Amino acid sequence: MYTEASQSLKSVRDLIRFAVSRFQEANLVFGHGSNNAYDEACYLVLHSLHLPIHDIAPFADANLLPSEIARVLSVIQTRVETRKPAAYLTNEAWLGDFRFYVDERVIVPRSFIAELLRDQLAPWIQVPEEVVSVLDMCTGSGCLAIVAAEVFPNADVDAVDLSSDALDVAERNVTDYQLDNRVQLIQSDLFSNLEPKQYDIIISNPPYVNAESVDALPPEYLHEPELALGSGEDGLDATRVILMNASQFLIPGGLLIVEIGFNREELEVSYPELPFQWLDTASGDQFVFMLTREDLIDAGY
């Protein structure tokens, strides 16, 4: 089929149509930057041709060189046959306007916290310039730490992860953004290796997939580090450690912001004494909670 395609397809539009057909035929799963076959086809075709990924119109009917067609078809075939997320094929992922290097040492960035950070955590942070210290727990590629450093211009950011491989990727991204003097990378199993210090804000997108869901993950997700996905039987093991320790690392009035996926009901049942404030994101208000230091202390944490 791919040999026939290389002889028959001529334009960008042709290649996108072909990719959508192959992706749907193969029942690919999306969720690593796009949520449907068409958007992913557009991204992979345009990226492979070194064209702007957000503007297809000027190029849709452009005829392509045989070598360009071969390059794109190779990417399409690899996506179908390996089921690797597109981000691992292009070595890039986007959070809004922020671009990050990624490979299979880190989970593909996709955090609702990034959306909240882009608004500088308004209205809970009234003067962004007064934020001077941020902790990003489970930093992975360093994406949230970098966004935090960009939106809070006077803040130093500590970015923590257990995986040395992930921290190697984070180091590359921190250097790409020229933030080496403001973002410190720390290898630690959650808080266990941190020096005593208090932060204005702690953010975390920890592992939160429960055991049943881990067992049912489609092939695309199995390319991601297992360490970054599962967190015990109910998906809350890491979150429990964060709740138990965060107050010691927050200034008075400091904020704890944690993403927990689809575990809201389980979390609220487990911690009825905590006044979780659920933050609105584009996909709803069930994915990210906020607590203050005082909320945690009043509940005995």
Rank of each mutant, 00 (worst) to 15 (best):
S133G: 12
E233C: 04
F152A: 02
K10L: 13
V258E: 04
L121R: 07
A159M: 05
W94Y: 15
A216P: 01
L243M: 09
G230M: 11
R172E: 14
S111R: 01
L274D: 04
H223Q: 06
I113R: 00
I203R: 00
D280Y: 10
S188G: 11
L194G: 07
E171T: 13
L64N: 08
Y301R: 13
N63T: 13
H223P: 06
L255K: 07
A62S: 13
L250W: 10
E226P: 09
S231D: 12
V269C: 08
D158I: 08
E195F: 01
N35A: 06
Y271V: 00
Y208P: 09
R83D: 05
L135G: 04
E195I: 03
L279P: 02
I76S: 01
L28Y: 05
G235P: 10
A299C: 05
T281R: 01
E104W: 04
R79P: 01
N91I: 00
Y88N: 06
N36E: 12
N210Q: 03
R172Q: 15
V127M: 10
Y101K: 03
L274W: 02
S34M: 10
F289L: 07
E40F: 06
V147D: 08
V169G: 02
V75D: 04
S204N: 10
T78F: 00
F287A: 11
H223L: 05
V102D: 07
F100G: 02
T90W: 03
L46W: 03
G261S: 04
A238P: 02
G33Y: 07
D168Q: 14
R83I: 03
C138W: 06
G96N: 06
S283T: 13
Y2V: 05
L28H: 09
L179G: 06
T78N: 12
F152C: 02
N210T: 05
E220Q: 10
E25Y: 08
R17L: 14
I201T: 05
Q126H: 14
Y208R: 07
L44I: 13
G254R: 02
N263F: 07
D237G: 11
I16T: 14
E115Y: 05
N205H: 04
S192L: 12
S283A: 14
S247Y: 08
V151L: 02
N181W: 14
S67R: 12
V209W: 12
T3S: 14
R22E: 15
Q178I: 05
L217E: 03
A228Q: 09
F289H: 09
D295F: 10
